[in-house]
Amino acid sequence: MKKVIKPADPLIALQEYTAARIAIGRAGTSIPLKQSLEFKLAHAHARDAVYSALAVEALTVRLKQFELPVLHLHSMAGYREQYLQRPDLGRKLSQESVTELAHGATPADIAVIIADGLSAIAINTNVIELLELLIPMLRFAGFTLADIVLVEQGRVAIGDEIASALRARLSLVLIGERPGLSSADSVGAYLTYNPKPGLTDELRNCVSNIRPQGLTYKQASKKIFYLVQEAFRRKLSGVALKDNAGSLHE
């Protein structure tokens, strides 16, 4: 078959200025199949991320390097469909997990809580590398760490209940973010000073889009470390802390 050479789309030059899906051409007035399939693939990655599962065993093995006990917990959301429809259940620990945490914990500065959130893939692929940079920084600065927690079907606020039971002064929740079309594997880090059940989001600080193509492990660990130090220095977290975090965007 003879190849038809189409004239270049004069809109292509606009693509230099934005990552938006501009200048994608048209078949009739519809989106050409090639572009349509690319979009579908991106959506498929996002959907697969939402339904991915935390690799609990593999993560546990790799977390051993930090020489801390690793706890496996579960929220009250029994399965993914329920998790998606009942955010309230994802914020509470299951009865079994509550019992497991009931044994007296030694007070610590920071509880690292790892949750699947809306993308377990994000955690499976990024969290160890991030912690390999972050945990040594925290320890070098003299912070003590509670048991590391892996929690399935968890939302951000579940960290309040967990960190409170672990008697930690600050909770650091590392959680899979809602996947976008261009990134299905972003980790979000949420810091909450003096965590206890019932807190709301304005009392947290968030470092978002942690992944190699987004905020790199190095940048993210520096940001988190800065916020942790500030939270302990000022004994608070959330909106009030963020306002003064001048170096946050550097």
Partner: peptide, 22 residues
């Protein structure tokens, strides 16, 4: 009307310029 249905700021999918033409 959003380029290729993909809002790269709000991270959700809406209708494209093409959809309106359809």
């Amino acid at each position: 009307g959003i380029p290729g249905s993909d809002d790269i700021m709000l991270n959700y999918q809406s209708t494209s310029f093409h959809d309106a033409l359809y």
